[in-house]
Design a binder for these strands. Structure first.
Lengths: 342, 342
DNA sequence: CGGCAACGCTAAATCCATTTAGCAAACCGG
DNA sequence: CCGGTTTGCTAAATGGATTTAGCGTTGCCG
C-alpha cells in the first residue's frame, strides 16, 4: 500500500512540545478532566487551540490499549440484500452511535468459515460486544466470545449459549395465515407452504404456526403441502412451478417463507395471466417495498427490526454470563397490507 | 469455555510465563517469523500449543500501535436499502478481506454531520484507507483524510480533492434512452425525465445523456419535460400523478432517475389499468429484483458495482497525493432486460 | 517566621506486541 | 585448548494515551 510517506499523524507529545507543556497535561485537557486536576484555564485554552490548529485526532489504538476499552461495537450478518437485514444493520448502527460506540458491521455471506474468521478478527480488534445475526449455528461463535470474555447476543436465529432475540415466528405465521384464511371464501381451501430449510429453526417455527392456524379452522395440512425448497430464488421458482403444474393452477392459499423464496416465486408468477390469481391469496413472511406492489394480492409481514435491536442492546447492557434468555418479538403487517384495497 | 483465566484476555506475557520463555520469543513464534530468528522447533511447538489451549488472540490495538498499521479498511455510505449500495458494501467487504484487512462499513443516512463524525471516528481508529460513497459534498471529508494522511476515494459522487469512481451516468442515460426509443413506434414520442435533484452531479449528467439521445433523433426536449422532483418516493409519486393528469395519460417514454423515485412512481402506477401502459416505455437508472417483475415493461440499468470497487482499490493501491483522477464505469442492462419478451 | 495547605503542573508506570541489539552456551577448526 | 562462529534465546526500547504519585511554589495561619 503506497501510503504517502508524509508526516506522521500528530500526537499529544506534539501538542505538549508546541505549547511548552507535558503530555499528561495535554491528555487531561483534551479529555475535559483538567478541572479535576487543577490545570489553569489559560493552559487549557492554549492546548485546545494548538490541538485545533494542528488538527489533532486521538489515536483510539493507544487510548484503547491503555483503557482496555476500544469504543467499537461489532455485528456480523449474512448480507444487506433485503430490507430485514438492511434494517437490522442500520438500526444497530444508530443504536451503537447513540451509545457512544463506533459500529463495525461485517457481512459474512452465510459462510460458517467466514463467520468464524470475522468474529475472531472483530474480537482481536477488541469490540466491546457483538451482535450475531442470522447465523445458522451461533454456538461456536458464542463460544469464541465467551472465551474472549465479550458479551454477545444472537439475533434472528437463537442459540443456547447466549441471549437471543428472534421474531415470533410461530405467532407471526399464525397471524399471517389467519389473514389469508379470512379472505378466502372457499369452504375447504388448499393451503401450501413454500421455502425454507428442513430442520431450520425459523422454518419449523413458521410451519408450526401455519399448521396451528389451519388446524383451528379444521383444515387438513398433509405433509405434501409443505415445500421446504430452500431460499435460493431459482429453486423456489422451480418448486412453485412444479406445484402449479400438479394442481393445474395456484393453490387457494400460499404461505411463502421469506423474501428470497418470494423472489423466485415472482419469477414464475409473471408468466401467469391475471386470472390465475383470482380467489388465490399469497402471504410472505417478510417485506419489500416493490414486492408489495406486484400485480397480485400479497400480504407481507414486516419483522420488527427496531424492537429486536433494542432488546439486543438491553441484553448487552444487563449482561450476565451464563444467563441465556430468549425474546420473541412479534412481527407487524407490512405497509402494503394497509394500503391494498379490498 | 476454554478460558483459563476468567477475566482478562490472555497476552503473549501469559504464554511466555506458561511456557517458560520470553514475550519476544512468543511474538516471533506466533508471527511465523521464528525460523528467521533461530528459535528451535521444540520451543515453537510448545508455544503454539500453549497459545491454542488458552485460546490466545492477538490484540490488534497493541499490534497496530506498534506497527502503525491497524488492519482496518473504512467505508462510509448513505444506507443499505437498495441493491446498489448493498452491492457496493458487500463487494468492498470481500475486497478488503481478500487484501487482508478487516472491513469497517458505516452508514450515515446522508446526513453531512453524521458523515463528518463517522469519518473522524474511523480516522481515530486508524483505518488505513477510506472509501467515501454517495456523499453530496465529499470535499470536507477528503480534507479530513488528507490531514490525517490517509488515502481515500470517492465512489458514486465525485470530488475534486480525491480520486473518484462514478458510473458513466451520461453514457448510461444515453444507452437507456436509446433502448426506449428503439421500442417506440410513434414518430415523435414525448419523453419525460423524473427524479433527482437540480444541480446534483448524477442528475445533471443523466439529463445530459437523456437529452443527447433524444436530440440525435431529432426529438425535442422542452425543459418542462424534466421533473427534478427529488428522490423521496412520495414526492415522486405526486410528480408522476400530476404529469399523468396533465397529459391525460402516461408519456410514451419515461426515464426514471433512481430506484427510490421509481418506488414512488410504482405506487401511482398500480392504480392504473394495464392498458394505460400500452405503447409506453419506462426506463430506470437502477436495478432491483422485484421492480424488474412489475406488471408493465421497465428497462433497468444495473450499475457495475464490482468494477467500481475494484477501481477504487486500484486507486488506493497506487495512491499518489495530489493526483485526483476520475473513472467513469459503464452500467449494464439489468437481468430483466434480457428476460423480458419482446 | 515556621509549618501546612493549596496550587499547577510533570515524571513515570502502564496497556500489549514487535523488533533490534546482544548475551551465554555450544561447537568447530587448527 | 583458544579464537571464532553458530545457536537459541532475552532484555529493552518503541508506539500513543492515561493516570497516579509527587515536586516545587506561593499563600495563609498562628
Amino acid at each position: 500500500m503506497a501510503t504517502a510517506k508524509g508526516q506522521r499523524r500528530s500526537t499529544i507529545y506534539d501538542i505538549a512540545t508546541a505549547t511548552g507543556t507535558s503530555p499528561a497535561t495535554v491528555s487531561m485537557v483534551l479529555n475535559g478532566t483538567w478541572q479535576r486536576y487543577r490545570i489553569s484555564e489559560a493552559t487549557a485554552t492554549r492546548i485546545l487551540d494548538a490541538a485545533r490548529t494542528i488538527g489533532y485526532n486521538v489515536n483510539m489504538k493507544a487510548r484503547g490499549l491503555r483503557l482496555a476499552r476500544s469504543g467499537l461495537a461489532g455485528m456480523i450478518m449474512p448480507h444487506y440484500r433485503n430490507r430485514f437485514f438492511a434494517g437490522l444493520s442500520e438500526t444497530f448502527e444508530a443504536g451503537a452511535r447513540a451509545r457512544g460506540f463506533c459500529p463495525m458491521v461485517v457481512s459474512t455471506q452465510r459462510k460458517p468459515e467466514t463467520e468464524r474468521e470475522v468474529v475472531e478478527r472483530l474480537l482481536s480488534h477488541q469490540v466491546e460486544f457483538l451482535f450475531i445475526v442470522g447465523v445458522a449455528n451461533p454456538d461456536p461463535l458464542n463460544e469464541l466470545c465467551s472465551a474472549a470474555n465479550i458479551p454477545c447476543v444472537n439475533i434472528d436465529l437463537p442459540g443456547a449459549n447466549a441471549p437471543s432475540v428472534v421474531t415470533d415466528n410461530q405467532g407471526g405465521a399464525r397471524m399471517l395465515t389467519d389473514i389469508l384464511l379470512d379472505k378466502i371464501a372457499a369452504p375447504d381451501p388448499s393451503f401450501h407452504f413454500l421455502g425454507g430449510v428442513a430442520g431450520e429453526y425459523a422454518t419449523e417455527e413458521r410451519i408450526a404456526g401455519f399448521s396451528q392456524a389451519l388446524a383451528s379452522r379444521g383444515i387438513a395440512l398433509p405433509e405434501t403441502h409443505i415445500h421446504r425448497c430452500g431460499y435460493w430464488p431459482p429453486t423456489a421458482r422451480q418448486s412453485i412451478e412444479h406445484l402449479h403444474d400438479k394442481l393445474g393452477g395456484l393453490p387457494a392459499g400460499l404461505f411463502i417463507n421469506s423474501i428470497t423464496a418470494f423472489e423466485g416465486a415472482v419469477q414464475f408468477f409473471r408468466a401467469l395471466p391475471p386470472q390465475a390469481f383470482e380467489g388465490r391469496f399469497i402471504g410472505c413472511f417478510d417485506w419489500d417495498p416493490f414486492a408489495a406492489f406486484l400485480p397480485f394480492p400479497v400480504t407481507m409481514l414486516r419483522q420488527n427490526v427496531e424492537a429486536m435491536i433494542e432488546q439486543g442492546f438491553s441484553y448487552i447492557e444487563n449482561y450476565r454470563a451464563g444467563d441465556h434468555p430468549l425474546t420473541k418479538v412479534p412481527p407487524q403487517l407490512g405497509p402494503s397490507h394497509v394500503k391494498v384495497p379490498a
